[in-house]
Design a protein around this nucleic acid. Sequence first.
DNA 1: ATGTAGACTCCAGTCGACG
DNA 2: CCGTCGACTGGAGTCTACA
Lengths: 94, 94
Amino acid sequence: MAVALGKRLKECRHAADKSQETLAFEAQVDRTYISAIERGAANPSMETLADICHAMGISLAEFFVTFTEIPQAPDGERRKNAAKPKEIKRSRLR
Amino acid sequence: MAVALGKRLKECRHAADKSQETLAFEAQVDRTYISAIERGAANPSMETLADICHAMGISLAEFFVTFTEIPQAPDGERRKNAAKPKEIKRSRLR
DNA sequence: ATGTAGACTCCAGTCGACG
DNA sequence: CCGTCGACTGGAGTCTACA
């Protein structure tokens, strides 16, 4: 998932003919963080990703156009901080 | 931006005929956080957003299909933690 | 030009409670 | 069923530095 995102980013970045350094500068994010994203080691927020897309001159729709498959369920390790959902009780079954 | 995202989420959630509670349960995130996103008060990460999309049974491409316009430049207040980029020097201008 | 690592700050995301 | 608040824990994102 994060890996696919990284590959897609590298792709778009090359299409815009920019280095990680230049892109980082224009997107107002750290150079090392771009590196981390492309390697799938990071998990960017929407705001950050939107800025990056803007710096590459493409819309979010264009960026995600290759993400046609539905991401797998939260199978693996999630955040330790993760939600411990409680079963929902419908007093009235609809 | 975050507002548009919230509107789109509410839209998709209703299309899937789920309450915030149910969606939160299936996406493994907190109910209050879904609320925050829909009101544009939150800035979810990719991992979180992917889980939510999965819970609604749609792909990221489908979710972002309405986001055709390029997000505006980093105009307003960004994170205080934000990058303070240094101008890039090309020793050799290409 | 890119990968990686540690230390640091601030926010993403949780939980419980109230209206 | 939903919006919002406060407090808390861990991750997002930065900076410096070395290869």
